[in-house]
């Protein structure tokens, strides 16, 4: 297992109404790295993650996670959707949402029990949300919502984590908590792939980076490929890192 790629994408093409959104994406991501996916709006970042997770049907190409198709590797995968993708006025509390992370392992009909609850509390502790466990989810700040989603993903006990814009609209405390968590996951040998929009923080947060704009522009270790040239190719305007607006 050690020499398997965490994620292999081969010639992945996704189209919406027969207009290409992702074009011929190839990537091989080794295990244990933290990778950011960057690119302009409409570059297909979210679509890439959704296609990998089988939420969007590709026109061509294949995805392998630890050498297996997604359906067979599901238990090794955790997903953190954009926090804006759900209705936070849903009548439930923090603990309940986090417990949803165990549903996949429980399978149909079976309900979470004591053991699952214990794990949920531990996950909440890790993201610094333990004291909010009985809080109604509509009363959370954006950052707290994000941490709830992270705790839920932690409960899946996965090997590879897909996160869609985890840093979007979060407060400083949450940002720190997420970074700490990312590093911790990294040190445990887990792989994290996150859609990211703040270019400035890429070198600080991630080991690897993928530049995406419908086609893959470049992918590799941050220190090798995070440069003006690739940024210009991706964003289509002359880019100089020092002048990147935050």
């Amino acid at each position: 297992m050690a020499n398997l790629y965490a994620l292999e994408v081969n010639d992945l093409t996704v189209a919406y109404r027969y207009k290409p959104v992702l074009w011929d994406i190839d990537m091989k991501i080794p295990q244990g790295i933290l990778m950011g996916i960057v690119g302009p709006n409409g570059a297909g970042k979210t679509t890439l993650i959704k296609a990998i997770l089988g939420l969007v049907q590709p026109v061509a190409g294949s995805v392998r996670i630890f050498g297996k198709p997604y359906k067979k590797a599901r238990s090794k995968v955790a997903y953190v959707p954009q926090k804006g993708s759900v209705d936070w006025d849903f009548p439930t509390n923090v603990l309940d949402v986090v417990l949803m992370g165990t549903y996949g392992k429980l399978g149909w009909i079976k309900r979470p029990g004591k053991e699952e609850k214990k794990q949920a509390l531990e996950a909440l502790e890790k993201v610094g949300m333990l004291e909010f466990r009985h809080r109604q989810i509509s009363e959370l700040s954006g950052g707290q919502q994000q941490r709830v989603f992270l705790a839920r993903a932690l409960l899946e006990n996965a090997e590879i984590y897909f996160m869609d814009e985890p840093f979007q609209g979060v407060d400083a405390i949450t940002e720190k908590a997420i970074i700490k968590l990312l590093k911790e996951l990294g040190s445990q040998g887990k792989t994290v792939i996150a859609v990211h929009h703040d270019l400035q923080s890429v070198p600080e947060y991630f080991d690897w980076v993928t530049f995406l704009n419908v086609k893959k522009v470049a992918a590799g270790p941050v220190k090798d490929i995070f440069n003006d040239d690739n940024l210009t190719k991706t964003y289509g305007i002359n880019f100089q890192l020092s002048e990147t607006p935050s």
Binding site: D87, M100, G104
Partner: peptide
Amino acid sequence: FWKEHKLLIFDAEYAQTLGF
């Protein structure tokens, strides 16, 4: 199907990634 219904209403895509 209590837990499945709850999950479907709250976050259908997430439910799908969990294999439901």
